[in-house]
Amino acid sequence: MPNDQRPLPTPTPETAHFWEGCKAGELRLQRCTGCDGSYFPPRPFCPACGSRDVEVYAASGKASLYSYVINHRPPPGFGSDPYAIAVVTLAEGPRMMTNIVESPQTPEALKLDMPLTVTFEAFGEIALPFFKPAGV
């Protein structure tokens, strides 16, 4: 996959812990110490109750496939083959948009609710969290 054109995130002060975690091979979520809810994307307060008493923790990296589309017209930086744009439900609750890797990008291979495991791919200074079928 040609990577030089792929758009990459710019970490902000509120998201730095997440991107540092990805580089270290760890999926970091946040949870509210008041209402105990986990949430994503990162922010310094709980979107459920508004409390600023939140903490960062390492998630299990386990997820299930919630939904996806197969894009047959990849934008620059995403190669030339069709690829799945997926939403996964993390074991801890939050949903995350991602790609499914190490799997054929077909409806036959991508079954809704299939168990997934996080994997990280480095693009220069940024590592992106992708998901692969569990057990692969």
């Binding site: 902000t12 002060p13 310094p44 307060f45 459920a48 508004g50």
Partner: peptide
Amino acid sequence: PELSVIGLHADAALNALADAGLKPC
């Protein structure tokens, strides 16, 4: 420096919510 643009918006909004005794929901 510890807040991004969207973080500054949220910080002020959370303070206004607290001022009113309200929650995001």
